[in-house]
Amino acid sequence: MKEPPFPTRDDIITGWIDLCHSEEGSDEYEESFWSCMLLDNLIDNFPLDSYKVILDILARDNSYCVVSATGMSLLVHLIGSHGEEVIDRLEHDVRHNSDLHNALEGIYNQGASDEVWRRVKKLVYTIN
């Protein structure tokens, strides 16, 4: 019996970038939407691994649409669900990564603790 193909890390990154660059409702968007679902699952179950994938996405494509979508979707979910696990890494990495800083600029709080959210907002307003 042949095993079904599973997407690689590179496939996931490419799928997300393709999704960000496509028009909602288009064939390309529908064909790439799996990456969003898989990334949401990765964030829920493997927050530190998903954080590394987010950094890889931003390193590969720092266009406005990818940076803003990554912030408004993936980082909002990650910080809201696992802020305590990733805030120290965010504070370290944002100082050396302007694309990560830009992705954080437009996010909103969706479940982060008051302390984590205070630290995130401090990053947005004090680093650039």
Rank of each mutant, 00 (worst) to 15 (best):
W117M: 05
V116W: 02
N45A: 12
L75W: 09
A69I: 04
E85C: 04
W117Y: 07
A59R: 15
L48A: 11
L90C: 00
N109V: 05
I107H: 04
N102F: 05
E30P: 01
L38H: 09
V76D: 08
S81Q: 14
L90N: 00
N97I: 00
W34K: 07
R60P: 07
T70Y: 12
D56E: 15
I43T: 11
I79Y: 05
H82A: 09
Y64C: 11
N62P: 11
H92A: 04
V67A: 11
T70C: 14
E84A: 06
I57A: 10
L104R: 05
Q110T: 03
Q110Y: 12
F46K: 14
L42M: 15
L74V: 07
E28H: 07
V86R: 02
Y108K: 10
S63N: 12
E85Y: 03
I79K: 06
A103C: 08
G111D: 03
V94I: 14
D49H: 13
L39P: 06
E28I: 09
R118G: 00
R60S: 15
D27M: 09
V76W: 02
G83D: 09
D61G: 13
L90A: 00
F33N: 09
F33L: 10
L100P: 04
A103I: 03
A103L: 08
D44F: 11
N45Y: 14
V94H: 02
E105C: 08
E28K: 10
L104I: 07
L48K: 15
